[in-house]
């Protein structure tokens, strides 16, 4: 199945894109997608313990399943205000 990945701030800089389309296997979770991206962009690894995520613009845990067509966002530590 195919998903859209949204990246922000330094993750976007590392990947060189704000949005990626990626094919993932059946029964993938957000964590699966993340590990696939770490493989592709090794500098993502330093965010392993500080990343949070969202699916279709709603906060989600890394063990949440993803579905075909989902928008999966990875959020580095935030700094609003």
């Amino acid at each position: 199945m195919r998903i859209t990945v949204r990246l922000f701030a330094r993750l976007r800089d590392i990947a060189g894109a704000a949005e990626l389309r990626r094919d993932v296997g059946p029964e993938s979770t957000i964590g699966t997608v993340w590990r696939q991206l770490v493989h592709e962009f090794p500098d993502f690894a330093s965010y392993e313990r500080s990343i949070s995520s969202a699916v279709n613009a709603d906060y989600a845990r890394m063990d949440q399943a993803v579905n075909d067509g989902d928008e999966v966002a990875f959020l580095p530590p935030v700094s609003g205000g």
Binding site: A9, R10, D13, S50, I51, S52, Y59, L75, P76, P77, V78, S79
Partner: peptide, 9 residues
Amino acid sequence: WIEGATADP
């Protein structure tokens, strides 16, 4: 980039 808190509501 300024990085603060891990966003977890």
